[in-house]
């Protein structure tokens, strides 16, 4: 059961109360389409994975990268295939289509491993699609704490690298440098290598760097989940600020209350597929029901349908 719990790490309880928002639940002022996602498929190539075992166990997201035709060489290698040519493909997003409009705040929900972060990166253009296409107005930017920079370098160098990589000019980086340091609240640690930072400091700095530029379409990946309460409040304020300037935002979060408070539309992803797309309250009501049912099923000892299928015994899945 503990394994299944990992996959249902959803925060049903309040992290941000809707009342925290000064202007109440957001209302969509829907304009022109700014982002079109057309039958998007994302396939990762994973080296060193045990594709055969995972695929045999019935996880349809994972398959062997090579054709099933067994050549002579393949048979020769089959006894060592775990070690030689252990390449598998993970089909993380499977055929997602939707249109986002100017002024919408779109939340993406789904249990762990449902492809939320991958989808977000793909629509930002960071992961090339395997099939399908993403069309966007302007350049979407990903805001998050996962923007791993160079840990062996000082915070100062990282601010420069991050800022320039975001497309700022050297002058803009210089102007915003102090703001970033203040916001991240790391003081003189900015002149120390980032690998010496505590995890909270590192996350704060990464968030501060990635929010230094204001894009047309903003993607936020779990950014609200880091740091202490004070930083959470500050990062929320920053997101609100960026949100006012950005036309459209996408938010991935495990906190349902955060999504409830910030989004006008919700996409529910399950195993890489879009299972619901609609107004926040409608989708979240269904999603909450789904998550609660799983919680109960788990506590009463019933492994649900979304338990990690890779670990299920083949006898139970072979229908």
């Amino acid at each position: 059961m503990t394994e299944s719990d990992l996959h249902l790490d959803v925060d049903l309880d309040a992290e941000l109360d809707p009342e925290d928002l000064v202007d109440g639940p957001p209302v969509a002022d829907v304009g022109e389409p700014v982002l079109v996602v057309d039958d998007l498929h994302i396939v990762y190539r994973v080296f060193g994975g045990k594709a055969k075992q995972v695929a045999a166990a019935g996880n349809e997201n994972v398959r062997e990268a090579k054709a099933p035709k067994r050549s002579f060489v393949k048979r020769l290698l089959s006894s060592t295939s775990q070690h030689v040519g252990a390449v598998s493909e993970v089909h993380a997003v499977r055929g997602v289509s939707f249109v986002a409009h100017h002024g919408e705040s779109i939340g993406i929900v789904g249990i762990n491993g449902s492809g939320k972060s991958t989808l977000l990166r793909a629509i930002t253009g960071l992961i090339p699609p395997h099939q399908g296409a993403v069309y966007a107005a302007g350049e979407p930017a990903l805001l998050g704490v996962n923007a791993a920079l160079m840990p062996q370098l000082t915070g100062e160098r990282n601010i420069w690298i991050g800022g320039l990589a975001l497309g700022l000019t050297p002058k803009q980086v210089e102007e915003r440098f102090d703001d970033v340091v203040d916001f991240a609240d790391i003081g003189d640690f900015v002149y120390m290598p980032m690998k010496t930072y505590s995890s909270g400091m590192g996350a704060r700095l990464r968030f501060a760097i990635s929010s230094a530029a204001t894009p047309d379409i903003l993607m936020i990946d779990e950014a609200l989940a880091t740091g202490d309460a004070a930083f959470k409040a500050r990062s929320k304020a920053r997101i609100d600020e960026v949100r006012k300037d950005a036309g459209t935002i996408f938010l991935v979060s495990h906190s349902i209350s955060t999504i409830d408070a910030m989004c006008t539309r919700v996409l529910w992803l399950h195993q890489g597929q879009l299972v619901m797309d609609g107004p926040t309250d409608e989708v979240l009501a269904q999603y909450k029901k789904f998550v609660r049912a799983h919680r109960e099923a788990q506590t009463s000892g019933r492994a649900g349908g979304v338990a990690p299928r890779a670990r299920q015994k083949p006898s139970r899945t072979g229908r």
Binding site: V36, D38, S97, V99, L274, M276, D277, F290, G304, V306
Partner: peptide
């Protein structure tokens, strides 16, 4: 309730989306 809804089958085709 343990099962999520069926995946949405897109109502607009690829060519329509491309046109948009």
């Amino acid at each position: 309730p343990l099962r999520p809804p069926e995946p949405i089958v897109p109502t607009t085709s690829s060519s329509e989306l491309r046109a948009v």
